[in-house]
Design a protein around this nucleic acid. Structure first.
Lengths: 284, 284
DNA sequence: CCTAAAATGAAGCGTTTGTTTCAACATCTT
DNA sequence: AAGATGTTGAAACAAACGCTTCATTTTAGG
């Protein structure tokens, strides 16, 4: 139930002063409820305690408690305009799950990419394309695969790009060579894994540059990261979505490709030649 | 000038910690700014003073001053429904790469998901949720990682889901057990790899059901596949994009989660318990 | 490598806040 | 009219807040 409904539900039990508070709230799109008790009381021409009784009558344990609920409510309302557009189009089409999913994904990507500022993107692209230092990549349970994919692209564009895997040599051991001017790219979304956090902290200890790709709740790594890119998680399933993070990844690839320039192109040609050499050798 | 523009205007002068605050604000539709200094600081993983310096850097006399401005700003946004659309105009082609990329990705996803018809989706979801047969997953050079991710989800929802990797046991050898009622999911996009094609043909020979996720140019596997899902490839870089394919993958997860129903939920609980058991055991 | 400058957070301060108590007031009942 | 019931705000209080100071850490330049 949203906040407005909650007020309407209890309005029969309101006293005159409480009705005045409700009026003030409605006339401000409920936003007046985010002010202080004193300010709201003044606007409704009632006293502080009356405002508090109002909040408690709505079933909240405290005034800040009510404000928290109200914030969530308003956040929903700010996010919903897209829902309206989505529902309109879904009436013409048949298949709700697909169109709904498309809207969720599009929305997540748009918000995620809009959040990225040019400066950060350029800085990250520079760091990833500069082959005078090494780049290490690592990710968590699911995000590891994104690290692998970025590695696949990065490897084509520049030398000294390494992926950290759990294997015979542990990621931590692999990082033993990381140094001052090197870069560690970490993909970490919620249920932030301790081992990944430790890894990032170790890299930071070695004074490496840490680039973090995470969700808006921010991995603990954000504290030590030099550059942070946040990606929405909204999915049509109960799980978190990797789609916006994948979009960010490919945006980075695009930026790095540009930044790598001629050097990168030459390297791709070399790799191509090497691959054909291998194929013709093993195929025969 | 609205609040978002004000942040963007000052963002070049931001320190890393301040950038993190900006990220948290944007990812909450700026609503996080109405919280207390301490709460906002905690969410951005910075200290209180940093939040105050952030507010003062934006030109506000105090934090409550900033909140007042922000409340007005949000009220304006609530009054006019054109929210996301209006934001582009306030920037007018500043960071074109990001907005352009967002459009490319959104379009790719929308076209891809609109193409999927309900029948195919349901059939695939049924096949993937039915644990009376085994499900094998495989992918190419890049798409392998998508197969891994789908496996990660599928494994949580049902038994007998296997990923084919190149290792000590080759994918081909691993498939030796595949039978009439089993399912092979293949991710294959252009530069269709021969080994993957052969694998699919082998599975078909064994009369298994083949589900193919590919690009609109269609992998050769489409000839033998029982169900085909096509995904656009348009990326902001010269490479092919995996974003729409990732979207399809997560759509499948959503559909399978629904189809798996109570059985799937029980399995998740079991896995959770097992994981905690392992943690408490190894942590001590 | 070292040093100057910038960035950041811990601790503490004074203020404001939300909250409680209780007396004054209004309204309704008999 | 007098009491009972419900409503309201002034005052006092403890908790939480925003804010300042300053030492520490981090970064950048020679």
């Amino acid at each position: 139930m949203n906040f407005a409904d909650r007020i309407k539900k209890h309005s029969p039990q309101f006293t005159p002063a409480e009705h005045r508070i409700a009026d003030v709230l409605f006339s401000s799109n409920l936003l007046g409820g985010l002010d202080t008790v004193a300010k709201l009381a003044e606007r409704a021409r009632v006293s502080g305690p009356t405002v508090l009784r109002f909040a408690s009558k709505l079933g909240f344990d405290s005034f800040p408690d009510m404000q928290g609920f109200l914030r969530d409510d308003i956040q929903n309302r700010l996010a919903s305009p897209l829902d309206l557009y989505g529902r309109q189009s879904s009436q013409t089409g048949k298949n709700t799950l697909c169109t709904e999913a498309a809207d969720i994904f599009s929305d997540g990507i748009k918000r995620t990419l809009e959040r990225i500022d040019t400066q950060t993107l350029e800085k990250v692209a520079d760091l990833l394309s500069d082959s005078s230092h090494a780049v290490y990549l690592v990710g968590g349970r699911f995000t590891h695969h994104l690290a692998e994919i970025l590695w696949g692209h990065l490897h084509q564009l520049r030398p000294r790009a390494y992926i950290l895997r759990t294997g015979v040599v542990s990621p931590r051991d692999h990082l033993v060579d990381i140094g001052r001017r090197d870069v560690l790219v970490v993909f970490d979304m919620r249920r932030y894994q301790e081992d990944i956090v430790e890894l990032a902290e170790f890299a930071k200890l070695r004074r490496a540059t840490v680039i973090l790709v995470t969700d808006p709740l921010l991995s603990p790594i954000a504290r030590v990261a030099n550059q942070v890119l946040t990606c929405d998680l909204d999915a049509p399933s109960p799980y978190d979505s990797l789609v916006p993070m994948m979009a960010v990844l490919e945006l980075l690839v695009a930026a790095v490709t540009t930044a790598a320039g001629e050097k990168g192109r030459q390297r791709i040609v070399e790799i191509e030649q090497l691959r054909h050499f291998g194929e013709t050798n093993s195929a025969s």
